[in-house]
Amino acid sequence: MNTTAALSHAVDRAAAAAAHSPLRSYALEARHEFLRLLRTPSFAIPSLLFPALFYLLFGVLLNKSNGDAARYLLATYGVFGVMGAGLFAFGVTVALERDQGFLIYKRALPMPPGAYLLAKMAMAMLFAMMISILLMALAAGVGGVSLRPSQWALLFVVNLAGVLPFAALGLYIGTLVGGQGAPAVVNMLYLPMAFLSGLWLPLKMLPAWIGGMAPVWPSYHHSQIALKVIGMDAGGNLFVHLGVLFGITALFFALARRRLAA
Rank of each mutant, 00 (worst) to 15 (best):
V157Y: 01
V157K: 01
V158Q: 00
V158G: 00
V158C: 00
L160N: 06
L160C: 10
A161N: 05
A161F: 15
A161T: 13
G162W: 00
G162A: 13
G162V: 06
V163N: 04
V163E: 01
V163T: 13
V163A: 13
L164C: 09
L164G: 08
P165M: 10
P165G: 11
F166C: 08
A168K: 12
A168P: 12
L169Y: 07
L169T: 09
L169D: 09
L169Q: 07
L169I: 15
L169W: 11
G170I: 09
L171R: 07
L171F: 08
L171E: 08
L171M: 11
Y172Q: 05
Y172P: 00
Y172K: 01
Y172D: 02
G174H: 06
G174P: 05
G174K: 08
G174Q: 05
T175K: 02
T175S: 06
T175N: 05
L176I: 11
L176E: 12
L176V: 14
V177A: 04
V177P: 01
G178K: 07
G178I: 02
G178C: 04
G178S: 10
G179R: 02
Q180N: 13
Q180A: 15
G181M: 04
G181V: 03
A182T: 07
A182Y: 06
P183I: 02
P183T: 05
P183K: 06
A184F: 10
A184R: 05
A184W: 04
A184I: 11
A184H: 04
V185S: 08
V185G: 06
V185T: 12
V186Q: 00
V186M: 05
N187R: 10
N187T: 13
N187K: 12
M188L: 15
M188G: 15
M188C: 11
M188I: 12
M188R: 01
M188N: 05
L189G: 04
L189E: 02
L189R: 07
L189K: 07
L189A: 15
L191A: 10
L191E: 00
L191F: 11
P192H: 14
P192S: 09
P192E: 04
P192G: 11
M193I: 13
M193T: 14
M193Q: 09
M193F: 15
M193R: 03
A194M: 12
A194S: 15
F195L: 14
F195V: 13
L196S: 07
L196Q: 05
L196F: 15
